[in-house]
């Protein structure tokens, strides 16, 4: 456990100092916050509950912030190999699974920080604008319930997939996937939009605001993954996102362990 925390802390401290992490994600968050249309969370009616306002902000940031998140994490393991630090890390008395898990946790924590900061800034703005101190608390809750599970899902694939298909190819496919799997109307073509596996947080947002945010539960492909939004379906969605996001790590960890044994 202490080894896992040590690797995670190392990865976190390394990643959090990365200039492009902050620049890319805060730029994207600022642009979408400033250009939101009159249906954006800034224009939610006066007197709307804090959970509704901050769920709207989390959904708004969830459109673009994970793009920067995926781009940042896409080169983490590839870069270790390119710079030759993989061999150095393998010489440590830590198994490949622990190393990978630590990198996942550290990378997730550091790359999620700009998202949390964006939510806190939005929460601060809404606290002043609406005079409701609950906005800040809901900013943190909405981040944890809506954005974080989706980021955990993306992190698993963004770390491991580039090892197989290369970072540039992953980045292209990731952007296409993000549009297809989150924002494309399910009636247009078979898509994961509106399912429990939609990492944009459609289910938690729909549950918090009391109406369909995007396409959660709308009939479409894989109907068993499209229950009506409720507390239970939100919980299932969060658990599914985290578990499916761990799958690439489990596969990669097994492959790395075998490689080390046969080396």
């Amino acid at each position: 456990m202490s080894e896992l925390l040590a690797v995670g802390r190392y990865e976190f401290r390394m990643q959090v100092r990365k200039r492009s992490l902050w620049l890319a994600m805060l730029l994207l968050a600022a642009v979408i916050a400033l250009t939101q249309g009159d249906r954006g969370p800034r224009y939610t009616e006066a007197g709307a509950p804090a959970r509704e306002v901050m769920a709207g902000w989390a959904l708004l940031f969830g459109i673009v912030v994970p793009i920067g998140f995926g781009m940042v994490l896409a080169d983490r393991l590839v870069r270790d190999r390119r710079l030759g630090t993989t061999a150095l890390l393998e010489s440590l008395p830590v198994g490949p699974r622990v190393l990978l898990a630590g990198k996942y946790l550290g990378g997730l924590a550091s790359s999620a920080l700009p998202g949390l900061l964006a939510m806190l800034v939005a929460g601060g703005y809404e606290t002043v604008h609406r005079g409701d101190p609950l906005m800040l608390a809901w900013a943190v809750l909405a981040f944890g319930l809506i954005m974080l599970p989706g980021l955990a899902f993306v992190a698993g694939f963004a770390l491991v997939s580039p090892l197989v298909i290369s970072a540039p190819l992953f980045r292209v496919l990731f952007v296409g996937y993000w549009f297809w799997g989150n924002m494309l109307p399910p009636e247009f073509l078979p898509s994961l939009s509106g399912t429990l596996l939609s990492p944009i947080g459609d289910y938690p947002v729909s549950w918090l605001i009391g109406e369909t945010a995007l396409y959660a539960g709308v009939p479409g492909w894989l109907s068993f993954l499209r229950p009506a939004p409720s507390g239970v379906s939100v919980l299932v969605s969060v658990v599914l996102l985290v578990l499916v996001g761990l799958l690439p790590l489990v596969v990669a960890g097994t492959v790395f362990s075998r490689q080390r044994r046969t080396a």
Binding site: S20, L23, L28, T35, I67, D75, R171, V175, F179, M183
Partner: peptide
């Protein structure tokens, strides 16, 4: 200009996505 692949790909991807969505 940014000397960063992450910055360039993030901004262009967001622009691409923004033009599709809006």
């Amino acid at each position: 200009l940014g000397r960063s692949v992450v910055l360039a790909t993030s901004v262009v991807s967001a622009l691409w996505l923004g033009e599709q969505l809006f």
